[in-house]
Design a protein around this nucleic acid. Structure first.
Length: 554
RNA sequence: UGUUGAGUGGUGCAAUGGUAAGCAUAUCAGACUUUGAUUCUGAUGAUAUUGGUUCGAGUCCAAUCUCAACGGCCA
């Protein structure tokens, strides 16, 4: 425990604040908008916010930023709560920005009374026009100089439903020439005659993000309001509103959002993939969502470990998807039960093995654990091995089965290939082998050393299962940097289904939520589509230096 | 041509004016192996550029270059 891990810049701020006595305890919040499912980028934020509170003895609120009724649904609220809990975090309070609508309204009235907000009748186009551009200042319009009394009345009428959508807005009165676009009289309230998932039809005006988020932070007395870099320009407004309203001074800090190779990380794009049927849903195992990762067999521990390793900083980043896979393998290697499954079967007949005989071999569930457990694997005259574990004309470094070659069958015997059977078209249909009785696993007296060990399944006892293999969703490493439509870069081969793989009998009792390592194939777990037929998702492959070696030769 | 933020091995994160710029991952090589897995060993590889301050600069200053964010009645 001597190694001191360096602090990230937010931890440094927190420690300074605590040390200076600015706060006795910290309060953070995770503020999702319930308009989509959480993805791995949110996991980074969740781990940061909840992790900070855990580390420094504070607390974290879950607050739904539900200020836009047309995009938000309770389905998303439910999924978000499930995902946060699954990741292993508990919130101190479950809040909603909509809980504060009345108070927010009063805050707006306060601003009007101070002469710091006004009702604008301009169209959205006119407002955009008057706003200028990043390089050109905006201009003021005639509504800006309405009297406080008039503004008060108009705003009350807006609430009362006297106006239609878009007819009027409430704006802060700041500075139309500000270099920061967000200070050019930002919109505070807009009219939306829409049904809200929680407040129903009680309101027809809704606060904008800038007038809800910071105020909600303040109401909850959030000490450190942590968000992503795109909100940096909002901070000036965040502070301005708190100052003018004279409310609890929450402070906003920004970190760089997570980007990962071979995927997209925006809810808008993910929603598009779902809506347009490029994936089967938000929890399609190829999606970078928490629910998809969960379905695919990822563990919350590995995701937390990943978030820990990627760190927190302010520079744009593109994290190798392989790092997440590394974290996964690291944990799955420790907990997964070893099983044997043949995906692409090649029949092996043990010519010198007694017809009708079955032997049971005990095979380790997991060689990595201290207390070993075993399951029985049946062995008989006819077996299946993987088709690519045999080569009629072996390449140089190939040390699997080939004519005249010997290999070990995991937990069973060493066999030697004596003959090949082909069909009319020249395809190999069967390999004939002889086994070495003295090479029996556990008491091998044969003194034969073989380089290769293969997984196998008894033809007589094999259980048919479905296996779904996933690859990266996109062909491009940096999808966001590509030209044109991101959907043009979707990997057409991201899903491969093997409807009839042969599994060893122990998998007949495969349990939901159990993690398996199919020997030499990868890590797998059962999918929710499992019915009478067991369906496995490949969580992640094993590292495969042989595949890499082969690729080099190409 | 504006404002703001950011530039350290392929990638990500450290080094808070003071050793040979560290850790992880990736890559390459080797050892071990009844998983070409795991494990172990070793290696390759970085301070955007140019000046300046200083005994000493990745760190401070200046200029330049590059990248990103900002012109929704989205968050």
């Amino acid at each position: 425990m001597s190694e001191e891990k360096s602090l990230n810049f937010i931890e440094e701020i927190v420690e300074e604040d605590l040390k200076a006595g600015k706060y006795k305890t910290i309060l953070t919040r995770f503020p999702p908008e319930p308009n989509g499912y959480l993805h791995i980028g949110h996991a980074k934020s969740i781990c940061l916010n909840f992790g900070l509170a855990k580390k420094y003895g504070g607390a974290t609120n879950l607050r739904f930023d539900d200020t836009n009724p047309v995009k938000e649904e309770t389905e998303y609220v439910d999924s978000i709560k499930e995902d946060v809990q699954w990741l292993g975090f508990n919130w101190a309070n479950e809040f909603y920005a909509s809980d504060y609508f009345e108070q927010l309204y009063q805050f707006a009235v306060t601003l009007i009374q101070k002469g710091l907000a006004y009702v604008d009748d301009s169209s959205s186009e006119a407002i955009a026009e008057q706003k200028g551009t990043p390089t050109q200042p905006g201009v003021e319009n005639e509504f800006r100089n309405r009297t406080i009394e008039e503004n008060l009345q108009l705003f009350a009428e807006m609430r009362a439903g006297k106006y239609t959508d878009g007819e009027k807005v409430l704006r802060a009165k700041i500075d139309m020439a500000a270099s920061n676009m967000h200070m050019r009289d930002p919109l505070l309230y807009r009219i939306k005659h829409a049904h809200h998932h929680r407040t129903g039809d009680a309101w027809c005006i809704y606060p904008m993000y800038d007038f809800a988020h910071g105020q909600s932070d303040s109401i909850e007395k959030i000490t450190h309001s942590i968000c992503t870099l795109e909100f940096v320009p909002h901070r000036e407004l965040y502070d301005w509103l708190i100052e003018k309203l004279e409310i609890f001074p929450s402070r906003q800090y920004e970190f760089a959002r997570l980007n990962m190779t071979y995927t997209v990380m925006s809810k808008r794009k993910l929603l598009q993939l779902v809506n347009e049927g490029h994936v089967t849903g938000w929890d399609d195992p190829r999606m970078p969502t928490i629910s998809a990762f969960r379905r695919r067999g990822f563990t919350p521990e590995s995701i937390r470990e990943f978030c820990d390793r990627i760190g927190v900083a302010k520079r744009d980043n593109l994290i190798d998807f392989g790092l997440l896979e590394f974290c996964l393998r690291e944990q799955l290697n420790k907990i997964a039960l070893r099983r044997m499954v043949v995906f692409d079967p090649l029949k092996v007949v043990i010519t010198n093995y007694e017809e009708g005989k079955t032997e049971m071999f005990a095979s380790e569930d997991n060689p990595e654990v201290e207390v070993k457990t075993y399951r029985d694997v049946p062995f008989c005259k006819e077996l299946y091995i993987e088709r690519d574990d045999f080569m009629e004309v072996p390449s140089k470094k190939y040390f699997r089965l080939a004519p005249g070659a010997m290999v070990r069958l995991k937990s069973a015997y060493i066999i030697k290939c004596d003959a090949i059977v082909k069909d009319d078209t020249g395809n190999i249909t069967e390999v004939q082998c002889s086994y070495i009785p003295e090479s029996k696993s556990g008491n091998d007296t044969s003194e034969i050393k073989v380089k290769g060990t293969l997984h196998w399944v008894s033809a007589l006892h094999a259980v048919p299962v479905e296996v779904r293999l996933y690859d990266r969703l996109f062909k491009s490493e940096n999808v966001g940097a590509e030209e044109g439509d991101f959907k043009d870069y979707i990997n057409p081969d991201s899903l491969q289904v093997i409807e009839n793989a042969y599994a060893e009998p122990a998998l007949h009792e495969a349990k939901f939520n159990e993690r398996y390592q199919f020997l030499r194939k990868g890590y797998f777990s059962t999918d929710k589509d499992t019915s009478s037929k067991i369906v496995f998702n490949r969580t992640v492959t094993l590292k495969d230096t042989w595949a890499k070696e082969q690729k080099k030769g190409e």
